[in-house]
Design a protein around this nucleic acid. Structure first.
Lengths: 163, 163
DNA sequence: GGTAATTACTTGACATGTCAATAATATAGC
DNA sequence: GCTATATTATTGACATGTCAAGTAATTACC
């Protein structure tokens, strides 16, 4: 029995493709960091990652965003955005305002309380991320960002046609 | 307004830390590829990513794995493993067998039908991954795997102490 | 060997995610 | 302007994920 940690990457035989190993490592790394962020957000602010994400999207757009815009930016379905917005609205952190240009649509905005709550969280969240990614230097981060950019482009183009 | 696609990475001001930008890009890339895999698994095999993951863990261990082992390897909670195993058991793809060494525990194994189903899926899944990660060459994959390895190690050590 | 602490799993409550169906409104085309 | 189509958001059904509490069995310890 190896003594190394046993996780999602485990048990990949050496003849498996390098791409598979890389993908599993991406999954495991993301999950580790994401789980940590969830836990910290819960412990320190009694909130969750999706709520934080939604507020982060709104924070830079004082005029608010339509549900569909939120959905696209958060890369989740509209139904999901409806649910999270409902929660945040109940908590008084965001508000739905009628879109004057489209009576089907809402503009979702941070309330003053929401903005106050967000800025504190965001500062600390940034520290957590800097800490978590601190294993890489600036140059390495830049190289990795380049790789990821190419993977993103590829993934998008794959969704275009249907292979 | 830039003409680039609007997604989870959007609207990060240039003064934000490189680590944040990298993290958001990791999230977006993972989500894009993962969503594609979910869709393909659903379309071609009427199954889901967590079911596939659980079966993948079992495939290399003919003797089966305990629920707790599955939980650790899949990096999800035990309650979650119970639910997914229930589904797969109903579908006849895995079975719970009494662990002869521990009467509290189960050994979860692929049924013959489960193994048959898995090998077909796995082959195609590997093609999908190779295709999705094809934007990177072998050397680049190896560099990226190294970066991710360091991020994983860091994340684990952060969970050790409590910063 | 008997009790206390730990471990393995299940359960129930709930948040988050998907999808498909629906209602309301906008838009395009004639 | 009317109609057909597309877009915006909500809803409900369901899968997946968390956590905390509960049960049963094992292990540690005196």
């Amino acid at each position: 029995m190896p003594r190394t940690a046993t996780d999602a990457e485990t048990r990949i035989a050496s003849d498996d493709h390098a791409a598979i190993r890389l993908w599993l490592r991406m999954l495991a790394t993301n999950r580790l960091i994401e789980t940590r962020m969830r836990r910290l957000l819960q412990e320190r602010y009694e909130t969750t990652l999706p709520r934080f994400d939604l507020m982060a999207q709104l924070e830079r757009v004082p005029g608010g965003l339509k549900m569909g815009e939120l959905s696209r930016r958060m890369m989740v379905t509209g139904g999901n955005v409806t649910g999270i917005t409902d929660m945040l609205e109940q908590e008084g952190l965001v508000e739905r305002v009628d879109d004057p240009d489209d009576r089907r649509a809402w503009l979702v905005k941070l309330t003053p309380a929401g903005r106050r709550a967000f800025v504190g969280m965001a500062r600390e969240h940034e520290r957590w991320i800097v800490e978590a990614l601190g294993a890489l230097g600036a140059r390495e981060m830049s190289v990795m960002a380049g790789f990821l950019g190419r993977l993103k482009t590829r993934a998008r183009s794959l969704e275009g046609r249907d292979t």
